[in-house]
């Protein structure tokens, strides 16, 4: 939802980033305000996943120019875990498996890291169990998942639900969902989308990165951005996604190039 005069949560200015010396992001500009849902769409290789990783602070990506401010604070130099406790959450396209560590322990350690960062006392095992049982409802997850190793042997849909469970638990100010819809059947997609919708509030924001318009039927964006060649080249409302779906990326990109050339 777009709110008048709401707080700017994320501001990205002329962001350039490279991996192994190859520049992937070539001047990204993006402003996300509290309450808003943004969708970033684009073809493979357009830089949209790189943008999500750079925002989360992945060490393989070098930010070479520009600035990222989160709630007014420059976060370019912050470690990934400090960005996380500051309120940035990245739902992974391919969530990692951590054999031997139970989901319950992982979630508790993560949750307590957030509490510690806020100067609050850590929750003990019992209080945490009460809290996490409550959160399971958001993604309709069975409690049995808590005692399995993190993502180990989970189906694609279960892994993505587990990501949203973490989001529900950690209550980020900015959630970046990197292709959360990829590999999901329609039922799983509905469950995941429904989970995200329950978590959106006037004081937080969601950036969805996706290849397909399908997800946007369930999580309705306020803004749709199109990325190509490391930049956001087009921004519009929800109708832009529909246009993309109807006409295809090629047509839109071609049209954009012509417009740029003419102007």
């Amino acid at each position: 939802m777009i709110y008048e005069n709401s707080e700017v949560i994320l501001s990205v200015r002329d962001l350039r980033a490279s991996v192994d010396g190859t520049e992937i992001l070539k001047g990204v500009n993006l402003t996300v305000k509290a309450g808003e849902i943004h969708a970033i769409m684009g073809l493979n290789g357009s830089g949209k996943s790189t943008l999500s990783k750079v925002l989360a602070g992945h060490p393989d990506y070098d930010m070479t120019a520009g600035e990222i401010t989160f709630k007014g604070q420059d976060i370019a130099e912050l470690e990934p875990h400090d960005r996380a406790t500051a309120g940035i959450f990245l739902a992974f396209q391919y969530p990692l498996e951590i054999p031997g560590v139970s989901n319950r322990d992982f979630l508790r350690v993560a949750y307590n890291a957030h509490r510690k960062a806020r100067g609050e006392e850590e929750l003990d095992v019992f209080d945490f169990d009460d809290l996490i049982e409550e959160k399971l409802d958001v993604v309709k997850m069975d409690a049995a998942f808590l005692d399995r190793s993190v993502n180990e042997g989970f189906s694609g849909g279960e892994k993505k639900r587990n990501e949203i469970l973490q989001m529900a638990l950690l209550e980020p100010t900015l959630a970046i969902l990197d292709e959360t819809d990829s590999g999901l059947d329609i039922d799983a997609l509905k469950t995941v989308a429904n989970g995200v919708n329950q978590l959106t509030r006037p004081d937080n924001a969601v950036v969805m990165i996706t290849h397909y318009q399908r997800l946007l039927n369930y999580i309705v964006p306020d803004y749709v951005h199109v990325m190509a060649e490391g930049r956001i080249i087009l921004t519009g409302g929800r109708e832009l996604a529909e246009q993309l779906e109807a006409e295809g990326y090629e047509a839109i990109l071609e049209q954009h190039k012509t417009e740029v050339a003419v102007s």
Binding site: E79, H81, A84, L90, F92, I98, G100, A113, S149
Partner: peptide, 19 residues
Amino acid sequence: YLQSRGISADQAQRLLIYG
């Protein structure tokens, strides 16, 4: 992955070894 959940690099290593 663990760091992106707020867990420090040091603690993340210990958690992986634990696992």
